[in-house]
Amino acid sequence: TKIIYHMDEEETPYLVKLPVAPERVTLADFKNVLSNRPVHAYKFFFKSMDQDFGVVKEEIFDDNAKLPCFNGRVVSWL
C-alpha cells in the first residue's frame, strides 16, 4: 500500500510503502513506519468519501481502524 502524507505546511508530500494490502492497512501500520517522528503529537486526517459531502478529510484516531483507500493508495495529513 502506498501512503502519501502531508506534514504541517510543507509543500511536498512524503510517500511510504507498506507490505499490507490496501483494504487491510490500519492506523497502527502507518504509525509504525513513522517511528522517527513523535506520532503522539499529531492528529491524523485521511482523504475519505462521505455520502453527504463527497470527498473530505476524516480524522482517524483508533489504531485498529482501517484506512480509507483511493486507487490503491492512502492520502493523509498530519
Rank of each mutant, 00 (worst) to 15 (best):
C69D: 05
S35I: 10
I3Y: 02
Y14F: 14
T26G: 01
F46C: 03
D52N: 11
H6I: 04
T12D: 14
V75H: 09
P68S: 03
V74G: 02
N71S: 07
R73Y: 05
H40F: 04
C69W: 04
I4L: 07
L67E: 00
K17N: 14
L15F: 14
K17C: 13
Y14N: 15
F45T: 05
F46M: 00
K43L: 04
V16A: 12
E59A: 06
R73W: 15
K43G: 00
E23G: 11
I3V: 08
A28Y: 11
A41E: 14
P13M: 11
G54R: 15
P22N: 05
M7L: 13
V74D: 03
D62L: 08
Y14M: 15
K57L: 12
V39Y: 06
N71R: 09
T12S: 12
L18E: 04
F46H: 00
L18K: 03
K47G: 07
P22I: 04
M7I: 09
V20P: 04
N32Q: 12
L67F: 00
Q51T: 12
F45E: 06
M49P: 06
P13H: 05
D50K: 15
L34N: 03
K43R: 13
I60W: 06
V55Y: 10
F30D: 04
P13S: 13
V56K: 15
K2V: 12
R24A: 13
D62R: 07
C69I: 14
A65E: 09
V74T: 03
A28P: 04
D62H: 08
M49H: 10
D52F: 07
T1I: 12
S48M: 15
K17Y: 15
S76R: 01
L18Q: 01
H40T: 12
P13T: 15
F30M: 06
C69A: 10
F30K: 07
M49C: 12
F70R: 08
D52C: 09
P19N: 10
S48I: 12
R37L: 11
G54V: 12
V55L: 12
V39P: 06
V56N: 14
Q51G: 14
D29L: 05
N71P: 02
W77F: 09
K47H: 06
F45Q: 04
P13I: 06
A28S: 10
F46S: 02
D29M: 07
A41D: 15
N71T: 02
S35R: 12
I4A: 02
N64D: 08
K57G: 06
K17Q: 14
S76E: 00
H6F: 13
L67K: 02
N64L: 04
P22T: 02
Y42A: 08
L78Q: 02
E9M: 09
S76N: 01
G72W: 02
E9I: 04
E10N: 05
D52M: 06
K57N: 10
N71K: 10
N32H: 15
N64M: 03
P38H: 13
V20Y: 05
V74K: 01
T12R: 14
E58G: 04
P13V: 11
S48F: 11
Y5N: 00
K2P: 07
N32E: 11
P38E: 13
K43Y: 04
V33N: 02
D29N: 02
R73L: 13
H40Y: 06
K2E: 10
E10F: 05
E23Q: 07
K43Q: 08
F53D: 15
V39N: 05
P19E: 12
L67M: 01
K47W: 09
L27C: 00
R24S: 13
L34H: 01
S48N: 08
T12C: 09
F61P: 06
Y42T: 06
H6M: 05
E11A: 12
F70L: 09
T26R: 08
V25D: 02
Q51E: 13
G54S: 15
L18H: 04
N64P: 03
P38Q: 14
D63G: 07
E59H: 10
R24V: 10
H40S: 10
L27D: 00
V75K: 05
H40E: 12
E23D: 09
T1D: 02
M49D: 14
F61V: 12
I4G: 02
L34C: 06
K66P: 10
Y5Q: 01
V25K: 02
L18G: 01
E59D: 00
F70I: 08
V33I: 09
T26P: 01
D29I: 01
S35L: 14
F44L: 01
S76T: 04
N32A: 10
N64W: 04
F44Q: 02
V56F: 15
P22M: 01
I3G: 00
A21T: 09
C69M: 15
K66V: 11
P38D: 12
F61W: 12
I60T: 02
S76M: 03
R73N: 10
Y42F: 07
Y42S: 02
V55S: 12
E58Y: 14
V75E: 14
Q51K: 10
K66M: 10
A28F: 06
V16Q: 03
F44G: 00
L15R: 12
A65T: 11
N64V: 00
A28G: 12
L15M: 15
M7K: 05
R37E: 11
T26E: 02
V55R: 06
V56T: 15
N36R: 10
K43N: 05
P19G: 09
V20A: 00
E58W: 04
D63S: 08
F44P: 03
